[in-house]
Amino acid sequence: MTSEEEDINQQPVTLLEISSLDLSGSLRSAGADPVHVEVMMHAQNDLPPIVVHRSSMRVIDGAHRIEAALRRGETTIAGRFFDGSADEAFVLSVRLNVSHGLPLALADRKRAAERIAVSHPHWSDRRVAAVTGISPGTVADIRRRVAGAAAPEAGRVGQDGRVRPLDSSAGRLLAGRLMAENPDLSLRQVAKAAAISPETARDVRNRLLSGADVVPARRPRGSSPAKGAARSVEHRPLTIFRAGDQPEPEIDRSVIVGRLMSDPALRYTETGRNLLRLLTLHTRWTEEWDAIVDNVPPHCTDVVADLARQFADQWAHFATRVGPGQRVAG
């Protein structure tokens, strides 16, 4: 959960007249999803309060909940106020609609990224990507073609609030030296010392292990990697798309699980909650895998490795059974 979401959750809950709310400017070009509204209408538990921009009364998050309340004949709804600028309200709206509930369509996420790239030109591609749920590479492409989205050449502000240079060559070289001289340093220690992101530090380490240059060769703009070129092993992102969308790589797993965590169809059933617990374990420990691997006692490695393979087989079988058109009798 981001600091913005934590701040919102600390605001008092107020009973709001639905007629006083501004529902214009929806992020969803296709409008409300009737199936999702139906699920919310019949939810047994209280739904989370909606979020409203105080100065404009525009709904930041909760359009489906409002529609469900209206269909139940209600005239009021529980909500929390957000105090901030219109641009800040838009960013929060995107963040909330991407991180939970019904995911935004790819086209809607790209349009949101266009606006944020213009309103927040100093934000890094990764920071915009984290808000909008698309890949940093796609954000970079959007930034190049959208007028007014260019940032100063010095650097951009990352997700952690730190300013990093656009050219990370010096940081990568320093990280490589630090790793060679101090192999026991953690990725976070190296990243902090070299003023690069932990993800970049991980890529540097992988390059050192494979014998590749720590500074990747720059490709001409618009070119694509050579056919068969190996992908970095630092991160294997999931691919999520709907019918009619093009596959969009590099969506953070934690973002996807966050959406599922707020889906009433999963939250309000025992089997759904069990599934969410299993998925949450994987996302919670994503950054801990290296430490876990390095600290498995030698006398346990064979047993742990065998169990890991068995669990992987179970997940593969599970994926086959729940996949579109693939569900079979248990």
Results as ranks from 00 to 15, higher is better:
residue 189 Q to V: 13
residue 295 N to Q: 12
residue 205 R to D: 11
residue 274 N to F: 00
residue 270 E to C: 03
residue 30 A to M: 04
residue 38 E to N: 12
residue 26 S to K: 01
residue 317 H to P: 01
residue 266 L to P: 14
residue 116 I to E: 05
residue 31 G to E: 07
residue 312 A to N: 13
residue 51 V to L: 03
residue 322 V to G: 07
residue 287 E to Q: 11
residue 95 R to A: 01
residue 282 H to Y: 01
residue 24 S to E: 09
residue 167 D to R: 05
residue 73 G to A: 08
residue 275 L to T: 06
residue 314 Q to I: 15
residue 27 L to V: 00
residue 327 R to Y: 06
residue 143 R to D: 06
residue 315 W to D: 03
residue 249 P to L: 09
residue 141 D to C: 06
residue 296 V to M: 06
residue 276 L to R: 03
residue 40 M to K: 15
residue 113 A to T: 03
residue 12 P to F: 07
residue 105 A to M: 08
residue 34 P to I: 03
residue 14 T to K: 11
residue 225 P to I: 00
residue 296 V to P: 14
residue 236 R to D: 06
residue 86 A to Y: 02
residue 73 G to Y: 12
residue 122 H to S: 14
residue 172 R to S: 00
residue 233 V to K: 13
residue 282 H to K: 00
residue 210 S to L: 12
residue 21 L to P: 15
residue 256 I to A: 12
residue 329 A to K: 11
residue 8 I to K: 08
residue 239 T to I: 15
residue 284 R to F: 00
residue 54 R to V: 01
residue 151 A to K: 04
residue 53 H to T: 13
residue 175 A to E: 09
residue 188 R to A: 10
residue 86 A to V: 10
residue 103 P to L: 08
residue 13 V to Y: 04
residue 242 R to C: 02
residue 239 T to C: 13
residue 251 I to G: 01
residue 242 R to E: 11
residue 142 I to G: 05
residue 307 L to M: 07
residue 188 R to F: 00
residue 318 F to H: 11
residue 174 L to F: 05
residue 20 S to Y: 06
residue 217 A to P: 02
residue 326 Q to R: 14
residue 145 R to W: 01
residue 287 E to V: 12
residue 300 C to G: 02
residue 243 A to D: 15
residue 206 N to I: 02
residue 8 I to C: 07
residue 210 S to E: 14
residue 36 H to R: 13
residue 46 D to Q: 08
residue 205 R to E: 12
residue 298 P to K: 02
residue 36 H to C: 01
residue 81 F to D: 10
residue 326 Q to T: 15
residue 136 P to L: 14
residue 171 G to E: 09
residue 203 D to P: 08
residue 35 V to H: 13
residue 92 L to D: 02
residue 9 N to I: 01
residue 66 I to F: 06
residue 52 V to Y: 05
residue 134 I to C: 14
residue 321 R to G: 04
residue 58 R to S: 07
residue 17 E to P: 08
residue 100 H to A: 10
residue 250 E to M: 10
residue 16 L to E: 08
residue 315 W to V: 15
residue 11 Q to A: 13
residue 93 S to E: 06
residue 162 R to A: 05
